[in-house]
Design a binder for these strands. Structure first.
Length: 195
DNA sequence: GACCAGATTGTCT
DNA sequence: GACAATCTGGTCA
């Protein structure tokens, strides 16, 4: 089943941990692509200097200030997009960055978009999974319950619920609040972006 | 496998 | 005008 609104309104750190093992799907005109979430990072709004929303509302980050259960997609480093799940009630501006997936369905489509064949390299990074799933900036602010991108429970797409351990560590690629352990990943998964 | 530089543009100061 | 929640391809070992 598709995750409901209640799920996204929970505490952001809890959502970040609970998202591990869940399935994310993206429907485009080219077809369907599905991956299992194996790595996330929590960004805690106005209380977190590393968060885009720390300095308040801007045209760029307005999707982050919306209601939990929407997508926040932003452009960075001149050439990459990253995908976030907005959490909590409107105005809290907290979100979970999806950092890595294990490819489940639509492998050929992902390989074609990425120009690669190795499944370990298809979604092992925030900008990579965006490219592999065919996520575009037009999907910024769209609903994760009724839109093109959806998040499902572990047993959708004929999958079985996996058994795994969660590792908590520091976030990657930031300079502010770099010591906080707000990054979570599936222990021993070969699909995470970095050990 | 580890380390380093280059790409490239929207956004905020 | 500086910088950014990154990736890739190079070099060297």
């Amino acid at each position: 089943m598709v995750l409901t609104r209640d799920f996204y309104l929970q505490d952001t750190v809890r959502v970040a941990k609970t998202l591990l093992g869940k399935l994310i799907s993206c429907q485009t005109t080219q077809g369907l692509a599905v991956g299992r979430i194996v790595e996330t990072e929590a960004y805690l709004g106005k209380a977190d200097p590393a968060s885009h929303s720390f300095r308040g509302l801007t045209p760029r980050n307005q999707a982050m200030f919306g209601l939990g259960g929407h997508a926040y997609i932003y452009f960075t480093y001149g050439m990459h997009f990253c995908f976030n799940v907005v959490t909590k009630p409107k105005g809290e501006a907290e979100a979970v960055l999806i950092r890595a997936l294990e490819p489940i369905q639509g492998l050929d489509l992902m390989a074609q978009r990425r120009g690669l064949n190795n499944p370990k390299n298809l979604c092992s990074g925030p900008a990579k999974l965006v490219q592999a799933l065919g996520i575009t900036k037009q999907m910024n602010g769209s609903s994760l319950i009724t839109g093109s991108i959806k998040i499902h429970t572990e047993d959708d797409f004929n999958q079985t619920k996996p058994d795994f351990k969660i590792v908590a560590t520091t976030r990657i690629g930031i300079t502010q609040a770099a010591d906080k352990k707000l990054r979570f990943y599936v222990k021993n998964s070969p699909f995470v972006s970095k050990k």
